[in-house]
Amino acid sequence: MAYDRDQATHEFTRWSESYDRSILQWLLFGPSHRALIRRIRTVVEDRPARILDVGCGTGVFASRIRESLPNAKVWGIDLVAEMLTKGAERWRQHAGHIQPAQADSERLPFASGTFDIVTCANSFHHYPHQDRAIAEMHRVLRPGGRLMLIDGYRDGLWGWFIYDVCVAGVEGDVHHASSKRFRELFAQAGLRAIAQKVHRGPAPFLLTEAVATDPAPSSIFPSPHFRGVMGLANREASASAIPRED
C-alpha cells in the first residue's frame, strides 16, 4: 500500500509525545535548521521578510527563525493537530510574530505570491503527492522568492542505509527523493535557478533551493481546511493571517 495522509497523521500523532526530545533534534534537525537559517540570512539579510515553514511540527524551527531573524514574520503549517498543540508554549512566546495553523501541504491556505521564503525541513519524505506539495509551495511565493527544502540525502550508500532502510523501517513506506528527483520536481513546478548542496555527517541531508517565477494559478483543489491552534487563531488572529484567494 502506498504511503498516504492517514499514515502520516498516525505517525506524527504518535511521535508528538516525544518529538522535542528525539535524538534527531541533535543528529539531524539542529544541523539542518542552522543550514537553512544561514541561507535565509544570506538572501534576506536584515530586511523584513514573510516566511512560511511547511511541516512546522512543534515550532522548533519557526522559533529559531524568529530568534535569528528578528525582522521576519513567520507562518507555520502542519497537518497534525497534536504536533501543533505540543508547541503551545512556543506559539505563546512568539505571539504576533509566528502564526501557526493546521493545514495540508497540498492545499496551502494562502494567496498566491504571499511569501518571500518558503521552507520545508525534514518532513517532505512523508508527503504522499510530492509534486503537488512543491507546486503549492511555488504558488504562494512571490516572483523572485525562494523555496528552500531540506530532506535526508539518500543517494550514497550510507544515506541509502540510513533513510531507505532504517528510517523507512521505523516510519513505514516514506519516500526520500533522490537529488535528481528533487531537481525534476522543482523544474516541473516552474521553479528556476535550482541549486543543491549536500551536508555530510552521521545523518546527511540535502538542501535544494530555487527561485520562484510568476505566481502559479490557483490549484485545482477547492479551498483548503484552515484551523487555528491553541487560541492563537481566533477570529482576531485568523484575520491577521493571509487568506487564500480562490
Results as ranks from 00 to 15, higher is better:
Q7D: 09
H10V: 11
W15L: 11
S16C: 03
E17L: 12
S18T: 15
Y19S: 08
L28Q: 10
L28N: 14
F29T: 09
S32T: 05
R34Q: 14
A35C: 11
I40R: 03
I40Y: 10
I40G: 08
V43N: 09
R47H: 15
R50V: 12
G55C: 05
G57D: 00
G57W: 00
V60P: 01
S63A: 15
I65Y: 01
G76F: 03
D78G: 00
T85Q: 12
G87K: 07
R92F: 07
Q93P: 05
H97P: 04
I98N: 06
Q99P: 05
P100R: 01
A101T: 01
A101N: 02
R107F: 03
F110Y: 15
A111S: 15
T114C: 14
V118P: 09
T119L: 02
A121R: 14
N122M: 11
F124D: 01
Y127L: 12
P128R: 00
D131M: 07
R132G: 03
A133V: 13
A133D: 04
I134V: 15
M137H: 03
V140D: 06
R142P: 13
P143C: 03
G144W: 00
R146L: 14
R146E: 13
L147H: 03
L147Y: 06
L149D: 03
I150E: 06
G152C: 08
G152P: 07
G156M: 07
G159S: 01
W160E: 06
F161W: 15
I162P: 05
Y163L: 04
V167D: 06
G172A: 01
G172N: 01
D173H: 13
H175V: 13
S179I: 08
F182N: 05
R183W: 05
E184T: 15
R192W: 07
R192M: 13
A195W: 11
H199W: 10
A203R: 12
E209V: 04
E209L: 11
A212G: 14
A216C: 14
S218K: 10
F221M: 13
F221E: 08
H225W: 11
F226Q: 11
R227E: 13
G228Q: 10
G231S: 07
A233P: 06
I242T: 10
E245P: 02
